[in-house]
């Protein structure tokens, strides 16, 4: 299909890293997203909050190509239309994603998990004849260090604790060397100490990449200290600093009114 991108959308999308406009998704008649619009600038870190079922995960599904929107535009790095690409292509563009429920490759070792995620040629024949280079080994070591799992490198991922799996998954994201990271509820199920460490880890990462974090945990969001977008029933309710958002009557209504 050869269709030209609408000039208006294009103009607005141009300087952004991620650009969502009027995105709607419905499942069997139920609208999970209704006209959601969101812009992420290059290098920005953004926290997304919202009650359960607000459509946060669905939004990530749309960005990463898992779910195709019924309508609306999704552009990456200015002019790449993400709605036309599959998951693998979107990942190769430099969008990494961490799932709400930690998913690592359980029967692979920690090392192999990172190794698999390492940027490189992803074509079947390329991996068939691939030989691990010194540079790659060094890079895996470096990431293991960042996610504090160096001493667990030969463990099967299945044997890691919940928090360690979350970190491993973040490590895999780093290995992909993405331009944009989507992180879905990284602190879910973590101890307070782990949560704090995770916040530090994400801030470290955000120095070089754009990050979108979905989180429930308000202390965690406060720790991050970034711009916040509040989602409700599939569209943006409020946007700004956490304090400003918490003061917004609409937000208070949604969080406390029910």
């Amino acid at each position: 299909m050869t269709s030209t991108i609408e000039p208006v959308a294009h103009a607005k999308a141009k300087d952004s890293l991620l650009y969502l406009d009027g995105v709607s998704v419905s499942f069997d008649g139920f609208k999970a997203l209704r006209g959601l619009s969101l812009v992420i600038e290059p290098g920005e870190m953004r926290a997304i909050i919202g009650p359960n079922g607000a459509g946060k995960t669905t939004m990530m599904d749309v960005i990463t190509g898992k779910t195709k929107p019924d309508s609306g535009d999704v552009y990456f790095a200015g002019d790449t239309d993400l709605t036309r690409l599959d998951e693998a292509a979107i990942a190769s563009l430099g969008i990494g994603r961490k799932f709400q429920k930690p998913t690592v490759f359980e029967s692979h070792t920690v090392w192999d998990n990172i190794d698999l995620a390492l940027a490189g040629d992803r074509k079947p024949f390329a991996t068939l004849f691939h030989r691990t280079s010194q540079a790659e080994i060094a890079r895996v070591e470096e990431i293991l260090d960042t996610i504090r799992l160096t001493d667990k490198r030969d463990w099967l991922a299945a044997n890691l604790s919940h928090g360690q799996k979350q970190w491993l998954e973040i490590g895999m994201l780093l290995a992909q060397e993405p331009k944009l990271l989507l992180v879905d509820e990284p602190a879910a199920g973590m101890t307070d100490a782990e949560t704090a460490e995770t916040a530090i880890l994400l801030q470290e990462i955000a120095r070089t990449k754009s990050v979108v974090v979905v989180e429930h945990d308000m202390t965690f969001v406060r720790d991050l200290g970034v711009k916040v977008t509040v989602l409700h029933e599939g569209s943006v309710l409020s946007e700004g600093s956490l304090d400003a958002a918490s003061a917004d009557p609409k937000v208070i209504e949604v969080y406390l009114g029910r």
Binding site: T64, K66, D86, E87, A88, A89, A91, S92, G96, R97, F99, T103, V104, F105, E106, S107, H108, L116, A117, R122, K123, P124, T127, M172, Q176
Partner: peptide, 18 residues
């Protein structure tokens, strides 16, 4: 990658393997 597909197919896609 094959084993990764076996264990978590969609995860494998999201790190860029077709």
């Amino acid at each position: 990658v094959l084993v990764a597909v076996r264990d978590a197919e969609s995860r494998t896609r999201f790190i860029g393997y077709r």
